[in-house]
Every structure is written in C-alpha cells, then in structure tokens.
C-alpha cells in the first residue's frame, strides 16, 4: 500500500509520498475522465512519444510477439485508432456509449516522482449504450514517465477480467 514510502519516514518524506500519490491519482482520474467523455485527442495527449497500449486477449500473460491481444498499440497504431474514432464513421461508437469508470486500489510501485515509474490500479467501467448495460472490470498497470516536467503514460496494460469470454463491441477507450 505504501510502497513509495521509504523506511526512514520522517515527516518530509511522508509529505513527499503523499504529494506523489496525489499527483498520480490526479493523473489517473484525469485520464479516466477523458476516456469516459470520449475526448480522444486530449486522451492521446497524455501519452509519451514511445508507447505501449496493451489489452491482452485470452489470458493476462500472453506474449504479444507470438499471440494475439485485443489491443497491442505502438504510437502509429494508437494514432490510427484515435484517427478512426475521431471520424464520424466509427459506427460501433455511434451512438456513443455513456461511460462511468471508477479507478481504485491505486498503488505506486517502484515509483520516483522525478522519473516516474509503475502504478497499478483497478478499474470498473459501467457502459450504457442504447438499452444495453455492460460492466468491464480490469486490473491496470501504468508506466508513467516525467517528460518536460509533465507526467505522461509510457505504457498502459489493461487485464480485463473477462478477456477469455466472448466479447462484443469494445471500441471505446479502456
């Protein structure tokens, strides 16, 4: 839980740990809001230049070099994805679903505010489209980097609870 707090936790260290946590939380909450609101371009701006956006299929531990995923985007593929979603012709997102996601269980693992690091969390996304409701639950791993003073996503891995099940339309931003 307090993985970011060093052993010799004086008051200053504790404060720094809280400040780090606040910054990371705010970042993840902002990301969640942009994704929920289908603000594709703004969401894309949260990514570092080199990136991996990964949603494995069939199991959590597949090897993307040898097995398929739902999403295994580098920058070029992510830009294609966002380009398409921004056209009026992404029909599986027309009408757009209403999304409400909760990000919780945030843990700063191996994190340093000057460079960034790994953050894990849990997400629960409620999706309502037309008269259909879906719940998407996942474990999430972010690798954040600090570039030019700003936190950015370098990697995001989304381990869907139902990545083995039959899935229909999952074209919004996870």
């Amino acid at each position: 839980m307090m993985a970011a707090v060093p052993q010799q936790s004086g008051e200053a260290t504790l404060l720094r740990a809280w400040a780090d946590r606040m910054e990371v939380e705010q970042f993840l909450f902002r990301e969640a809001e942009l994704a929920d609101a289908h603000q594709y371009t703004d969401w894309q701006a949260l990514w570092a230049k080199e990136l991996v956006y990964w949603v494995p299929a069939n199991a959590d531990d597949v090897d993307p070099a040898r097995q398929i995923s739902f999403i295994y985007d580098n920058r070029a593929r992510l830009e294609d994805r966002i380009f398409r979603l921004n056209t009026p012709f992404a029909h599986s997102q027309r009408p757009r679903p209403r999304l409400v996601r909760t990000v919780a269980n945030i843990q700063l693992v191996d994190y340093d505010s000057s460079r960034g690091g790994t953050v894990t969390s849990r997400v629960c996304i409620g999706e309502t489209r037309r008269d259909e409701n879906n719940i998407w639950m996942a474990r999430v791993k972010h690798v954040l980097v600090r570039e030019g003073g700003k936190l950015l996503m370098k990697e995001k891995h989304v381990f869907l609870a139902k990545n083995r099940a039959s899935i229909g339309n999952l074209t919004f931003l996870l």
Partner: peptide, 29 residues
C-alpha cells in the same frame, strides 16, 4: 520469420476482434 508472423498478428488486431477497427462495425450493422 517470427517478425513477419508478429506483423500478421498486429494486422489482424487492427481490423478484427472486439477492439478492432473493422469487425465491430460489421457487427453493429
């Protein structure tokens, strides 16, 4: 090669599956 086959997987993901750019639109229709 492994690299060519990996590219085949990336091509597949780009259009097909529930997060692809193509088949979800087919299913929608």
């Amino acid at each position: 090669s492994n690299e060519l086959n990996a590219e085949r997987l990336r091509q597949h993901e780009s259009f097909y599956g529930p997060c692809g750019a193509g088949s979800p639109d087919d299913a929608e229709m």
